[in-house]
Design a protein around this nucleic acid. Structure first.
Length: 269
DNA sequence: AAAACTACCTGAGTGC
DNA sequence: TGCACTCAGGTAGTTT
């Protein structure tokens, strides 16, 4: 499931193949994604891709004029393949490049998106409300303590709120809370600043480790070369059937805000 | 104001 | 074998 590490892996994977390339042709086989594919994509033929970056779970593709904004949704992935490769099922969008290679976007569940803006993409209405990047210095204990203060919501829903901090989804929220020894259902306003500082480091460490492993593949996600992400083998609680690796207690699964949370009832308080 | 819930979607897995 | 059903989750928008 594409969270920050999967998006980062994808962005790094495509960058060497798309930066400096001219967009020769755009094919949109299915417009009905989370939002209809931006109509401007019909007019970007001939433009140059100058840079690729990431903000939260969005991939920004800066052109010589305008910016493409991609989101992988829940099942999106990107591949770089020879243009002549026959499209796979659910391969909705293809950017054919001057190199003879093509960027191919596949998304079975169509929760992804391709948007376009002529303005500063960070001011786009979907991006302007995003909180700090979890790997940046802005995300520190003072910030999180202030954000959590007086909140009665569970800490897990707080760190999954993209306005508080961006890029943390269900899997990495569960894993980070396990690393920090904090129960996902604990009320955010009832956690000390010291423990929040530990949680911040746990989030950073978890995300960085996942990026090193090429992300987590449960079903659809693939790296740009088609390989899965290998962080699945490092998961401590998410979807884990075995007892806790630290203390041997059975991992518990509870539903929180329509999402499954996994935690060790002994290690996490 | 904040928290909880809903809709969007397909494929994998389960049980009969 | 096949059908009906449940579950998975990112996030904008709606309701409580």
């Amino acid at each position: 499931m594409p969270e920050l590490p999967e998006v980062e892996t994808t962005m790094r994977g495509i960058a060497p193949y798309v930066c400096g390339q001219k967009i020769r042709r755009v094919i949109v086989r299915e417009h009905r994604l989370r939002w209809p594919v931006a109509k401007e994509t019909a007019e970007i033929q001939g433009r140059m891709i100058e840079a690729v970056s990431r903000r939260g779970k969005y991939i920004l593709m800066q052109l010589d004029r305008g910016t493409l904004i991609w989101h992988l949704g829940m099942s999106g992935s990107m591949r770089i393949l020879p243009t002549a490769t026959p499209p796979e099922k659910h391969e909705h969008i293809e950017l054919q490049l001057g190199s003879g290679l093509a960027l191919k976007f596949r998304d079975p569940r169509r929760f992804g998106a391709l948007l376009y803006t002529d303005m500063d993409p960070l001011q786009h209405r979907l991006l302007c409300q995003l909180g700090p990047e979890p790997l940046s210095q802005d995300f520190d204990a003072d910030y999180l303590y202030t954000a959590c203060k007086h909140k009665t919501a569970a800490i897990k829903s707080v760190i999954m709120d993209s306005r508080i901090v961006t890029g943390v989804g269900n899997i990495y929220a569960c894993e980070s809370l396990f690393s920090a020894g904090i129960k996902p259902t604990r009320k955010a306003g009832r956690i000390s600043k010291n423990r929040l500082a530990i949680l911040i480091e746990a989030i950073r460490d978890t995300l960085r480790a996942a990026i090193r492993h090429g992300g987590t593949t449960l079903q659809d996600f693939t790296q740009v070369d088609g390989n899965p992400g290998y962080f699945r083998h490092s998961l401590q609680v998410y979807g884990v059937k075995e007892p806790c690796s630290a203390c041997g207690t059975a991992i518990r699964q509870v539903v929180q805000g329509q999402r499954s949370s996994y935690f060790c009832p002994k290690c996490q308080t």
